[in-house]
């Protein structure tokens, strides 16, 4: 762990931004570590969730937004459920991920690609077309054979459709995407 010089590296604006966007108060955290103790993903995190909270209190924007932890959090809500200070920790992690995405900092590209492939299916068809989502992910990520071993299983079990079903209001769903993107551009 690097030493942080707090006198010249605290990003106060970032702390305020996270507070405002998440509606949570990170300064309530007294580092008991209960969130980390229950976090199923902590073995895979570069910074345990309680440390992300501490880094946030210290305004360490770059370290947080470049971390793998914010992308490997599955929003399982264990931290939120167990926080004695009633901080919605998972919501803070979610907010940090959103800010990282907005700033184009994505430390776990495959995770983001999977999410994007999922959302593309929603935009196009109004619902998830599982096979299309997986194939799109495989193509974009370059992991062409990811989960290919599952193919025969789902196909013989009749669990997957070869063609997507498009809902009648798929254009209405696509409009939600478009309106959001327009609004996001306006706000820069």
């Amino acid at each position: 762990m690097d030493t942080i010089n707090l006198s010249n590296k605290v990003d106060w604006e970032f702390i305020e931004q996270v507070k405002e966007e998440s509606g949570q108060n990170p300064s309530l955290c007294y580092q008991c570590g209960n969130c980390t103790a229950g976090c199923p993903y902590t073995n895979y995190f570069d910074y345990p969730v309680s440390m992300v909270m501490r880094l946030l209190q210290a305004g360490q924007k770059d370290t947080i937004l470049n971390s793998k932890a914010i992308w490997l959090c599955a929003t399982c809500e264990t931290c939120t459920t167990r926080c004695p200070c009633e901080i919605d920790v998972a919501h803070i992690m979610d907010t940090l991920r959103i800010i990282a995405r907005r700033e184009g900092r994505v430390s776990e590209k495959d995770v983001k690609l999977f999410y994007d492939s999922f959302l593309d299916s929603v935009k196009q068809f109004g619902r998830i077309y599982e096979m299309g989502t997986l194939l799109m992910y495989n193509l974009r990520s370059g992991h062409l054979l990811a989960d290919a071993d599952l193919g025969p299983k789902v196909l013989t079990k009749g669990k997957i459709h070869f063609f997507p079903t498009k809902i009648k209001g798929s254009d209405k769903v696509a409009q939600i995407f478009e309106r959001f993107q327009k609004k996001a551009k306006r706000h820069g």
Partner: peptide, 25 residues
């Protein structure tokens, strides 16, 4: 009638208002 995807986890990695809109439709 004509329900659509809730947006699930992927949507709330994009934006909270956007995610809520996919669900609220």
């Amino acid at each position: 009638p004509d329900w659509s995807c809730c947006g699930s986890t992927p949507a709330h990695t994009v934006d909270h208002v956007f995610a809520a809109a996919l669900a609220a439709r």
